[in-house]
Computed example of a mutant assay.
Amino acid sequence: MTAERPIALVTGVGRRIGIAAGIVDGLADDGWDIAFSYWDGYESRMPWGPDTASHDELASALRAAGARALAVPADFEQPDAPAALLRTVNDELGPVRALVLCHAESVDSGILDTTVESFDRHFAVNARANWLLIRAFAEQFAAGAAGAALGRIVALTSDHTAHNLPYGASKGALDRIVQASAVELAPLGITANLINPGPIDTGWMTPELAEALRAETALGRLGTPRDTADLVSFLLSPDGGWMTGQLLHSNGGFHLPV
């Protein structure tokens, strides 16, 4: 627990079983101090419901492992939430050196049954909030650091589109925002990449769906949060500093063309 540990901010750590929580665990093992955001209002609208105790439990586990940890609620439907989150983390822990964007609004609907309210909420959370988080993150860095790779941005994306219109469309917008960041923020020494983790079993799959997805995966199993966390760890490491502007599929060969 020293000031020398860099600080990573991971968004969307709503459940202990989720991908974001696996990423947090991996980064703490790598020597990062951790701030993470959550929003129980989203979890309460999902079939699994909120896991309110998990936030304090995860923060305590991180501290026990030697990391400083800060859990912050953040409602990304609100346009002032991203900048407020970065200010809170900066005041409590220090400047953020890695931004890992895992939060998402995700409610299935298609072309004919998506409501305007749902469409706007998806874009507010999955596109606008990520742009504002990236902007607030970049504002911490001074100009003239090109080539130094001082900061890291990693975002989780998806290629799901049909019957998931607002989610898929807003994730497409996220892809473009992050790829633009790789170019525009390079003079600040910031890299920016996307990870498409494919289907990860975090408790939302029926047994039948899990088996069908496993059968479509070349390596013969479903992904785990740790599979994604390992790639995030690489991208945030010194060895990952030459990677930027990439959309990486880390999915065990899911749905490869035959």
Rank of each mutant, 00 (worst) to 15 (best):
His249Ala: 13
Thr202Ile: 14
Phe36Val: 08
Glu139Ala: 01
Pro238Asn: 14
Asp80Ile: 01
Asn251Gln: 14
Lys171Cys: 00
Ala180Trp: 02
Ala127Phe: 03
Tyr167Leu: 00
Pro73Leu: 08
Val258Ala: 11
Ala104Ser: 05
Met243Ala: 11
Asn164Leu: 11
Phe137Asn: 05
Asp120Glu: 15
Arg221Cys: 02
Pro207Ala: 11
Arg176Pro: 00
Glu184Phe: 07
Phe119Cys: 08
Trp48Gly: 07
Ala142His: 09
Asp75Pro: 12
Ile190Val: 01
Ile19Thr: 07
Leu58Cys: 00
Ile200Gln: 11
Ala155Asp: 01
Trp39Thr: 04
Met205Arg: 12
Trp204Asp: 11
Asp239Thr: 00
Pro207Trp: 01
Thr228Gln: 10
Glu211Lys: 15
Glu184Arg: 05
His103Phe: 01
Thr2Cys: 10
Glu117Ser: 09
Glu43Gly: 09
Ala67Met: 03
Asp227Ser: 08
Ala81Ile: 01
His122Lys: 15
Gln246Asn: 06
Asp56Cys: 10
Thr11Ile: 02
Ala74Ser: 12
Ala127Trp: 02
Asn130Gly: 02
Arg226Lys: 15
Ala64Gln: 14
Arg226Thr: 01
Gly252Leu: 11
Glu117Arg: 07
Leu62Glu: 06
Gln246Met: 08
Pro95Thr: 14
Gly189Lys: 10
Asp120Ser: 06
Gln78Glu: 14
Ala212Asn: 00
Val258Phe: 15
Ala53Leu: 13
Thr2Ile: 12
Ala74Trp: 07
Asp40Ile: 05
Arg97Val: 00
Ala142Glu: 15
Gly12Thr: 06
Ile7Ser: 08
Val24Thr: 13
Val13Asp: 10
Gln78Gly: 08
Thr228Met: 11
Trp242Arg: 05
Pro47Thr: 04
Ala83Ile: 03
Arg226Asp: 15
Asp80Cys: 04
Val183His: 08
Pro199Thr: 13
Pro225Tyr: 02
Asp75Cys: 11
Ile177His: 00
Arg226Met: 05
Ser109Asp: 10
